[in-house]
Amino acid sequence: MIRVMLPAHLRALARVKGEVELEVEGPPTQQSVLDTLEARYPMLRGTIRDHASHQRRPFIRFFACEEDLSHEAPDAPLPDAVTTGAEPLMIVGAIAGG
């Protein structure tokens, strides 16, 4: 089970409170977690990554285990603590004015 923490605006959009818990098929990666997340919450498509290219939106970051995973390859394995559910994968809106 993978725990995902969404930013507040995306929790409101998906109508969830707190963390989202996902069962991901195969080795958990950023890509497989986001595929699973978007399949369960289709309204999130396009808000975290591009519809077609799947490129991360510029003001979105991925944090876990006190590390910035934003620039890891999308198919790189996530840290063990995330794959075991001990730590959440945090999807964060960058501090960038607004």
């Binding site: 930013p7 605006h9 995306l10 959009l13 309204m43 498509r45 396009g46 808000t47 975290i48 519809h51 077609a52 939106r57 003001f59 979105i60 809106g93 960058a94 960038a96 607004g98």
Partner: peptide
């Protein structure tokens, strides 16, 4: 700028809304 574009639709004059396609 963070989350891009959404389109919302209401069928009850704006009391409730549902996100629709944004591609």
């Amino acid at each position: 700028g963070w989350f891009g574009q959404l389109i919302q639709r209401s069928d009850d004059g704006g009391t409730t809304w549902e996100p629709v396609g944004n591609a």
